[in-house]
């Protein structure tokens, strides 16, 4: 086998364009922070009687007086409660950071939804959640690799290996073999 036939290893989710599932009886829109204009247009394309908007934010922001506003820490309980009242024919549309949309995915799956019912927009930023493979600590909003683990302070290489369960990428110490060999941080894309 020739080396060039080997592709760079990667396990990152792929985000396809999101379209409204017209067959669905109910549509649940979930957005982290203030909704983008595209998301607002998308939201307004669905009949009012068939939709719910859940905004997740630490500050008071609302685009629709019918929307439900929760903080990140309230999300799991509120979403679980909402889904408990919804019909099998429900579709979720979620916009936010990558960690956020996969957190929503986990809650929705726990509530009995299947993957095809959860439509995810491409993450709004390149920020990543990082799982330290040495101390299992989570570091949020990582933008560069290597990054410092907020648990054990080691310098972690951010690998393109994503866990949907942890909603995080894996981080492995980069200078364990040679402490003098620490590359400059590169921005993650």
């Amino acid at each position: 086998m020739q080396p060039e036939s080997l592709e760079a290893p990667t396990n990152r989710p792929i985000y396809s364009p999101v379209i409204v599932n017209n067959k669905s009886a109910h549509h649940l829109f979930i957005c982290e922070g203030y909704p983008s204009r595209e998301f607002q247009i998308f939201y307004s394309s669905v009949d009012d009687s068939k939709k719910t908007l859940l905004l997740v934010s630490e500050s008071d922001s609302t685009i629709d007086h019918d929307s439900i506003l929760v903080t990140h820490s309230e999300l799991t309980a509120k979403l679980t409660q909402l889904l408990g009242e919804m019909p099998l024919s429900t579709t979720i549309y979620v916009l936010g950071s990558e960690a956020f949309i996969w957190d929503v995915h986990s809650v929705a799956t726990q509530a009995g939804m299947v993957a095809e019912q959860i439509k995810m927009f491409a993450p709004v930023s390149g920020q990543r959640r990082l799982f330290c493979t040495h101390c299992y600590h989570i570091t949020e909003d990582v933008t560069h690799s290597p990054a410092v683990c907020s648990g054990c302070q080691r310098n972690l290489l951010v690998r393109d290996h994503f866990s949907r369960l942890h909603a995080a990428y894996v981080g492995v110490q980069i200078d364990a073999e040679d402490p003098d060999d620490l590359p400059l941080p590169q921005e993650l894309i």
Partner: peptide, 12 residues
């Protein structure tokens, strides 16, 4: 919790 293709992702 990973699926078959997810845990094989890093294998060249």
């Amino acid at each position: 919790g990973m699926s078959f293709s997810e845990w094989h992702g890093p294998v060249p």
